[in-house]
Design a binder for these strands. Structure first.
Lengths: 339, 339
DNA sequence: TTGTAGGCGTTATCAG
DNA sequence: CTGATAACGCCTACAA
């Protein structure tokens, strides 16, 4: 292993000078700098990060708390984070939280005390993970997509409530009155807010709430659970003519269920999803959904975290990125069988 | 920050003793051990990893070189790696290689010289990434799924050639003679081997090779490119009655193409995929495919890497995990229109 | 069984 | 502008 001392000898200067050239390059004669650079080249010198980190008391590592990445939503967010962090000179350490819950305060705190990470981005905190607030006072933290409403901790997401409302309004405009929702039993704030948005839309349109039209899929938005939830809904004495699903995969499950029960989407049933992941346009009917800028969400999270790590004055604490309602083939005006 | 010295003072022993308890626990009186443990508890002491790593010349970090994780195949492998590495006391650093190619020797080597990682697992090397061989002489490395055939570098995968052969044989048994393949323009060994397996099966069955039946989809197995490749194939004067695709997503694209051209799968066309990712059973017809044990592949990779890091004598250098042909709804006996 | 002390490779504070 | 040197927090001979 070649170290700074070797470079100093090779360049005929002191280690201090080498270090200066490597870091700031300020206050060193251009010719001395050149000598050092050449020596570094010749020896293929790379500074030892453990030593540097020890000395500077930093790690240049960002911790990412992510649930099962198989969800394409998360993989896109991850890409965004990784791209930015690399540009900023950080490495990204990924901790699998296995579809939340296991997200343990002690584990996380220990990683920071041990000086393993300079900051953290969470992708799927539960709305009641209150411990985060206390944690954020001590270490740089950004919550991406999901966040704890009551805690004043930096977060970045989409306006889920508004997006859901707009999506349901589209259904209402199409003449639907019996509109169901398939949400999830997880404890994500997004699920709550999408339900709120759904109710907002109904209320504004003067449609009274019917709790039998609120179905719950599994915590991890599994296809099977979406299928089951839709089946239950469609088996109701007064079945809905439209279903708003809080995730694309759930919507796909709902469509499958409808097909199995002999219902044609969108003619017999309208379905909408959320997120706009790739497979929404892999099969007909293409899914009407809400596009969420996953990659951008990731990118901005890292940028925001960096502001907090570097203690940039006036760093934002709350960012909402624009969403977009994408009309495709799974919604249609209600067939007027009643009224 | 509480350090080992504080613990020593609190416990009334020397730092050496504390260190011993923390690491080996050998040769320390049980009662002394207890004193130390209590002090650690009281002070919430966590050893500083930078310092420890500097001293022990290790990082306890594993580098994972992965392409776009949005591919569910990779996310499952990743889960397997992460689970094992955590148990082994390693953190996993993920480097996005953006659908290969950018996998740069200099970048990787520098990460090791800098002492940032103790070992590396690659998920998608190209079959001609020969530099890996030299690299592997200096640093622990395991290639997962894809590997460089000519290089004697540890790798773990599935027997792609055999699996492909078996898959095509299933088609042959069903009476198909004009069997096409949709492979990819990427430089993965798996693509090559699946093509070899396809040819093996044909040859063994006495079916002569027809290069017009070999189509190439995009390097990243995109749905759109699968669609296009299938379209070209089906537009042939003598169209194939079965298509073997080297990836599930490609197969889904082929099915979409067939549908668009008025062909019913499996009655008018048989299609098979590869990998068995989740969405193969999200839409009818469910895909006949080859199941690859992704999670297990990841798990075993990390285990193998650990053997190499710890220089376990007789650590394996070549591991093949069993695959499984899964018959579902996209293959059927050929409709005897010819012959 | 336990303690003392030197050093891992850097950076940063001083003098010069 | 440059060089010597003291930390950073930990582990591990070696000594007791």
């Amino acid at each position: 292993m070649v170290k700074i001392e070797d470079v100093a000898r090779e360049a005929g200067v002191s280690v201090a000078t080498v270090s200066r050239v490597l870091n700031e390059s300020c206050g060193v004669l251009p010719e001395t700098q050149e000598k050092v650079r050449l020596a570094v080249e010749r020896l293929h010198y790379e500074p030892n990060l453990s030593a540097r980190n020890l000395r500077k008391n930093e790690s240049r590592i960002i911790l990412i708390l992510a649930p099962n990445f198989s969800n394409p939503y998360y993989s896109n967010v991850l890409s965004g984070i990784c791209d930015v962090s690399r540009n900023l000179g950080y490495s990204t350490l990924i901790y699998n939280t296995y579809d939340s819950n296991a997200l343990d305060e002690k584990l996380v705190t220990s990683l920071f005390q041990k000086n393993r990470a300079d900051g953290m981005i969470t992708l799927a905190v539960n709305r009641d993970d209150y411990w985060l607030a206390q944690y954020a006072e001590k270490y740089p933290l950004v919550q991406c997509s999901e966040y704890v409403e009551e805690a004043a901790v930096p977060h970045i997401s989409v306006d889920n409530r508004l997006a859901a409302k707009e999506s349901v309004q589209h259904l209402i405009v199409q003449g639907h009155r019996r509109i169901a929702i398939v949400t999830s039993t997880n404890r994500y704030l997004s699920s709550t807010n999408r339900l709120r948005g759904y109710l907002d839309a109904l209320e504004e349109a003067g449609i009274s709430r019917d709790d039998s039209l609120i179905a719950y899929a599994s915590a991890d938005y599994s296809f099977a659970s979406g299928k089951q939830a839709a089946k239950d809904l469609l088996s109701l004495p007064e079945a809905p003519s439209a279903i708003f699903c809080v995730s694309d995969i759930l919507a796909l499950g709902a469509i499958a269920s409808a097909g199995k029960m002999g219902l044609q989407v969108p003619w017999d049933l309208s379905v909408t999803g959320f997120d706009d992941v790739d497979y929404t346009t892999m099969f007909h009917p293409y899914l009407t959904t809400v596009a969420v800028p996953c990659y951008e969400l990731g990118r901005r999270s890292m940028l925001l975290l960096y502001d907090h790590i570097t203690q940039k004055p006036g760093a934002e604490r709350e960012v909402y990125l624009p969403h977009q309602i994408i009309l495709r083939e799974t919604t249609a005006p209600q067939a007027r069988t009643d009224a």
